[in-house]
């Protein structure tokens, strides 16, 4: 495999070498430089919605601007400031907006503390309104890009946006895999297995799934629908999944 060219850049006065094509945020994280962000996950393409990863850059040609580090590829001679005064004041307003949106989110509270923000000047939303969802769309993007079923998406526009299944009804496409639950940065999606039943609760819609029992250990380990899906895309038989992964090893 052809190796990408290396470029030299400076992040917060540290001179670094990085592979061309990587984003500033990835390079910073690889080098233990903290940039806050809520809508990124290595499993999916960057999206640029939360804006928290905003940084100040100066290009080799001397052009200064603010960019979202999750979307801006590193380049030769780039100078990056991750926490200038200007950046800090924008981030402060951003986190204050989130504090008002999701007053019961511990993740947001913790992040605010880390950014040195104590209070928000904006009236708090009722906690049942947004239910910890910050509309970063990580769940919907994972569902589309990784799982490949596009069961959930962002519906409505602007301030009325919500994450939901089509028509807020049980989705025929959802396989109950729970990937959305794992990627949600604010724990806004819940998943609970009880006996042979799995329940997935998004902020504004929910679904139930029947689980398959492992023939060896007897535990309910995977939704039937997920088996159908895996069998279909891999061309295997649904019967191949009668034994759970742990018992197979």
């Amino acid at each position: 495999m052809k190796k990408n060219k290396m470029v030299t850049l400076t992040i917060d006065s540290r001179k670094l070498q990085a592979e061309e094509g990587l984003m500033i945020l990835d390079v910073a994280r690889d080098n233990n430089i903290y940039i806050p962000s809520l809508c990124t996950n290595e499993a999916v393409e960057p999206y640029g919605a939360c804006r928290l990863c905003l940084v100040e850059i100066t290009t080799a040609r001397g052009r200064e601007r603010l960019v979202t580090s999750c979307l801006y590829p590193v380049e030769e001679g780039l100078t990056v400031k991750t926490n200038s005064e200007r950046i800090a004041s924008v981030r402060k307003v951003l986190i204050q907006l989130l504090m008002a949106r999701c007053p019961d989110s511990e993740v947001i509270q913790d992040l605010a503390k880390r950014l040195g923000v104590e209070t928000t000047p904006f009236p708090l939303e009722d906690k049942n309104k947004n239910k910890k969802c910050i509309l970063c769309a990580l769940c919907a993007r994972v569902c589309q890009e990784v799982v490949g079923v596009s069961a959930i998406s962002l519906v409505n526009r602007g301030v009325n946006r919500q994450l939901a299944t089509p028509f807020f009804e049980p989705s025929e496409a959802c396989i109950g895999c729970g990937s959305c639950v794992y990627v949600c940065p604010t724990h806004a999606i819940a998943m609970e297995d009880t006996g042979d039943k799995r329940e997935v609760r998004w902020p504004h819609s929910q679904m139930e799934f029947k689980l398959r029992k492992c023939k060896v250990c007897g535990s309910y380990w995977i939704p039937e629908r997920q088996i159908e899906h895996i069998a279909q895309v891999s061309g295997t038989s649904p019967d191949d999944y009668d034994v759970c992964f742990s018992c197979r090893e």
Partner: peptide
């Protein structure tokens, strides 16, 4: 109508979630 949206999703080979997003996005 809901049935129409479902038919559109099959007819254009796009996920229903995308059709529903678009239908609720535009005024």
């Amino acid at each position: 109508p809901k049935e129409a949206l479902k038919q559109v999703c099959q007819g254009l080979l796009v996920p229903l979630s995308q059709v529903y997003s678009v239908a609720t996005f535009f005024k």
